[in-house]
Simulated scan of single mutants.
Amino acid sequence: MSPGRETIGIGMVGHAFMGAVHSHAWRSVHRFFDPPLVPRLAVLGGRDETRARVAAAKFGWEDVETDWRKLVTRDDVGLVDVCTPGDSHAEIAIAALEAGKHVLCEKPLANSVAEAEAMAEAARRARERGVRAMVAFNYRRVPALAHARNLVASGALGEIRHVRSVYLQDWLSDAQAPMTWRLRRESAGSGALGDLGAHIVDAAQFVTGDVITGVSALTNTFVKQRPAENGGTDEVTVDDTALFLARLSGGAVATFEATRFALGRKNAMRLEVNGSKASLAFDFEAMNELQWYEGTGTEAGFRRILVTEPQHPYVGAWWPPGHLLGYEHTFTHEVADLLDAIGAGTDPAPSFDDGLRVQRVLDAVEKSAAAQARWTSVEET
């Protein structure tokens, strides 16, 4: 621990994929950044004690709990990190906030607007007692996307006219891929829409500074049954893909596509913004770069901005220019920002209200798709 800095005990619920990257962030953040509070990996929560202890030993946690209710009330826990499927986000986060614990909750915030509203209201009440809450949209912390936001905010693109964003994966393309919790509505809330679409909705709103006001959407489920764990088949009850048109509050029009069936695409989260003066484009599979266009003439074209200079967002804490960052760094940036906000007594971003705003868009997409792409206002959902 760095001299003069207080510690804060972290209690994390869940230890699968998100638990692994969050653990790495909590372990490393104070070794590269200078947060006012140094995290201590106090307790890891998991339903199976044996598996939880194996994960705790692997990731560096001091203790385990098999009941999240005990975890959120422990005296040695000051912040609860929720890394569970969406069906338990609301219950855990609200209980933690009411127990006076700061909360970091994975995205999407909840499985329904009603749950997200309850969480946002709990966060507002907690804020009055100095307790903070943040939703984990980690792509905001990609230095190139944060730099893109700064470029838009500076006016360098002029009037924003078009936004197009896609999130393409292929890990479900095989119809024989087994059933998981992500394919059940009761646990995941939705499919590609909530898992991937939530990210590109938030990224578009973050970079442009505008919000989505209405959508026209369609969704589809390509594989309706999958092999079950214990033999036989299970019914897939979520979407495999979601596509929608949208209008933003600043007047721009936008298109979005989220799918886990784009064969050959592994994690192609892309965003392009066209303005009256310039355009920018981002692709997470080249996450240290922005493509930038500004100019006219027969030789004009996009050029590459390598976002690894120390003056670029977050980058100065890491390596010399040209030494690239990776996926895991976005989570370290995320918890650094959260600890800074807690230390300063300010509200972190994205807040639970921001998460609720994304949830309203997802809800509007589902309602529009159910009504055969009828234009659906986000405010009316």
Results as ranks from 00 to 15, higher is better:
residue 280 L to K: 08
residue 333 H to N: 10
residue 242 A to V: 09
residue 247 R to Q: 05
residue 296 T to D: 07
residue 250 G to C: 11
residue 296 T to L: 15
residue 232 G to V: 08
residue 234 D to T: 09
residue 263 L to C: 15
residue 344 A to L: 04
residue 278 A to M: 13
residue 329 H to R: 10
residue 235 E to R: 08
residue 293 Y to K: 06
residue 299 E to I: 10
residue 280 L to D: 01
residue 233 T to F: 15
residue 226 R to A: 06
residue 282 F to I: 12
residue 263 L to M: 12
residue 259 T to L: 13
residue 340 D to E: 13
residue 255 T to I: 04
residue 230 N to Y: 15
residue 232 G to R: 13
residue 241 T to C: 08
residue 287 M to V: 05
residue 292 W to T: 08
residue 291 Q to W: 13
residue 262 A to W: 10
residue 333 H to I: 02
residue 335 V to R: 13
residue 269 M to H: 12
residue 331 F to Q: 02
residue 342 I to Q: 15
residue 306 L to E: 09
residue 332 T to K: 04
residue 302 F to C: 03
residue 290 L to H: 10
residue 247 R to Y: 15
residue 320 P to S: 11
residue 312 H to I: 02
residue 228 A to K: 00
residue 338 L to Y: 07
residue 255 T to M: 07
residue 345 G to D: 00
residue 305 I to V: 10
residue 324 L to E: 15
residue 299 E to C: 05
residue 339 L to H: 01
residue 235 E to Y: 11
residue 342 I to S: 02
residue 238 V to H: 07
residue 289 E to A: 12
residue 343 G to M: 06
residue 331 F to K: 04
residue 297 G to W: 07
residue 267 N to D: 12
residue 228 A to N: 05
residue 300 A to T: 06
residue 253 V to E: 07
residue 232 G to K: 03
residue 230 N to R: 11
residue 318 W to P: 04
residue 328 E to F: 08
residue 225 Q to T: 10
residue 344 A to N: 15
residue 228 A to Q: 15
residue 279 S to D: 13
residue 306 L to G: 12
residue 240 D to M: 14
residue 227 P to I: 02
residue 242 A to N: 14
residue 276 S to I: 13
residue 299 E to L: 08
residue 265 R to Q: 06
residue 284 F to K: 13
residue 254 A to M: 14
residue 271 L to A: 11
residue 322 G to H: 09
residue 249 S to P: 05
residue 307 V to A: 07
